[in-house]
Amino acid sequence: MAANAVSGALPGGAAFSAAWGFRQLRRRGVEQVLTAAVLVVAGGLSVLALAVLLVAGVVAAGPAGLRTVLLPAAGVLLVLGIALAVFGATRLPVPP
């Protein structure tokens, strides 16, 4: 609950909250990899929950809601695709 309070109360609080949660888990003896995995999965579930709410809102709004959300969603997916492509390209081994 303290991490959520920090997240909502401070500018950039999400970063402070994640760091605080990481330190708390590490202090309790959780391995570093498992701690990072827990934070990543929690963030992913949060994004999934927000996506479900977005879809429910679009369905409730009807065709006007679909038009309002479709263009920004396509833009986000395009940026994400480009970022993943750049990340993947930087990880490929350079041929000799």
Rank of each mutant, 00 (worst) to 15 (best):
P11E: 11
G13I: 02
A18E: 13
L53G: 11
L10Y: 05
Q32P: 00
P72V: 07
V41T: 10
L77V: 10
A83W: 08
L92A: 12
A56P: 01
R28K: 10
R28W: 07
L34P: 01
R91Y: 04
V79F: 15
V55Y: 12
I82L: 15
G29R: 00
P95M: 09
L10V: 11
R23Q: 13
R67P: 00
V41W: 10
G81E: 04
G21L: 14
V58K: 03
A2C: 02
T35N: 01
F16V: 14
A18G: 05
L71E: 09
G43F: 10
L25C: 03
A73G: 05
V33I: 09
G75S: 11
R28A: 13
A51L: 13
F16C: 11
G8N: 09
P95Q: 09
Q24M: 12
A5C: 03
A36W: 05
R23L: 15
A61T: 02
F87K: 13
V94P: 00
V41A: 14
F16M: 14
F16Y: 09
G75T: 06
A5M: 09
P72R: 11
P95Y: 12
A73Q: 06
G8E: 12
G65H: 06
L80V: 13
A3C: 11
V6H: 03
P96L: 05
I82N: 02
P93T: 05
A60E: 03
G81D: 04
